[in-house]
Amino acid sequence: AEDTGVRVELAEEDHGRKSSIALRLWVEDPKKLKGKPKDNGAIEFTFDLEKETPDDVAQEMIESGFFHESDVKIVAKSIRDRVALIQWRRERIWPIVQ
């Protein structure tokens, strides 16, 4: 995944069964963001792979004050890259569950 300066990782083991998965996002390189992130804590949240989109979560993070509006695209892209990886792995490791 392209280095956006925002890191997204699994916050729990993924067994491919649940449609929602816990993720953790943090800013690795604040210089890559247009706005100043609120604090550089790791933000953990649950993401529903079937019903939600990375843009939903990114917008909610902006509205919750974690990021500046001008960084919504970077945040959404970082989540999208990780979600794509999770789905790619799920299709290979647990194709029957899909």
Partner: peptide
């Protein structure tokens, strides 16, 4: 370690915890 929690109006819960030093890139 200190955890803070923000619940968005749509109901999603965001839990903020310190990033382990090892994960923060030296800028």
């Amino acid at each position: 370690n200190s955890l803070t929690q923000v619940v968005h109006s749509a109901g999603r819960r965001f839990i903020v915890s310190p990033v382990p030093e090892s994960r923060l890139r030296e800028s």
